[in-house]
Design a protein around this nucleic acid. Structure first.
Lengths: 175, 175
DNA sequence: GGATACATGTAATGAGTTACATGATTCC
DNA sequence: GGAATCATGTAACTCATTACATGTATCC
């Protein structure tokens, strides 16, 4: 659906172009490499969601466009299919397992995450600001804002957890 | 690693018990069903991270415990292995593709997410409060707080996005 | 004796990553 | 002519889910 949406938003593209766009606009939201994209495009053509034009393109490029059926399928997916809300977030997992570490070890881990998400929030704020300038607020504006808010929340969590851990460390070793 | 950590935190358990604990304490952080857990335990025994005791247990239960090597492997993973920060979040993806919808359709989608994450934040706040009471602040306290903060951030994003969308809708159709 | 919970597995399939492999065009 | 970029694919593997399959002990 990410691929189909990207194809629709670009009004037609080659697999190569889609792979490029993937690692640029949409990649903070969903990732896919070319080795996943090419077979997926073939499947979507078979399913009637996408059309191919293989003729007269330089370097053997193929040009894909979404069919009406493809557009309808995406719309249905967005509005009618219950989202899969499976969380698969290594930071959340690590935060859970952190309790198995000593306070000193936990602090090292937290410092690393704090820094990472500070930077990520920064980058996404820039992206959002850039997209806000575009007419119609631009494709990806809402998701950049969401990414910014989530990254900020994780950053602030890491600061909070650090303080909590330091507090506890002092209580337990009052030299 | 989630499974290994859970096993360590429980100081030994059966696959069945681990599957139960998975859908209770850790499942908002990482999910696994019994059909993934049983083979994974076998692999960990082969790798020397875990020991089995298959003898004299009722109903053919097996009892697993982490080895010293298993504890060291988890510690190394937490502290030295760079986290895989791949995002695979359907809400983020849907927020990206939302730009392809009409304002009315987007509002429906946003309302659904807003409500979902409001409830989720509520549940996680309760979990966190319960864990805060336990001695040592309890296993999972930090991750419950993180989940709460992320859910709250998504909830607030959905409210913000709704307001943005309503604003834009009014601008474009000033009847 | 029948339902329920305890307890363990396998098979088929799908999703995703990494590595391998190749050809076409352009730029210098 | 050689490097870089454009362009497409396949193979092997890991991870995860769903469905199938089975046996044991307890409760009523």
């Amino acid at each position: 659906m990410a691929l189909l949406g990207l194809l629709i938003s670009e009004g037609g593209a080659s697999g190569y172009t889609l792979a490029k766009s993937f690692s640029g606009s949409i990649d903070h939201v969903w990732k896919a490499g070319h080795s996943q994209i090419y077979p997926e495009l073939v499947k979507m053509v078979e399913a009637g969601l996408v059309d191919v034009d293989e003729e007269h393109r330089p370097r053997g490029a193929k040009h894909y466009t979404a069919t009406e059926e493809g557009r309808a399928a995406l719309e249905r997916w967005l509005l009618e299919v219950e989202p899969n809300r499976t969380v698969r977030n290594e930071i959340a997992l690590r935060s859970f397992l952190m309790s198995l570490l000593t306070p000193e070890q936990a602090l090292r881990l937290l410092e690393r995450e704090r820094e990472h998400y500070r930077r990520r929030a920064e980058r996404l704020a820039e992206l959002r600001n850039a997209l806000a300038e575009e007419p119609g607020r631009g494709f990806g504006y809402f998701s950049a804002e969401l990414g910014f808010r989530i990254s900020t929340a994780i950053h602030e969590w890491a600061e909070w957890a650090r303080e909590e851990t330091e507090k506890r460390e002092e209580e337990n070793s009052p030299d």
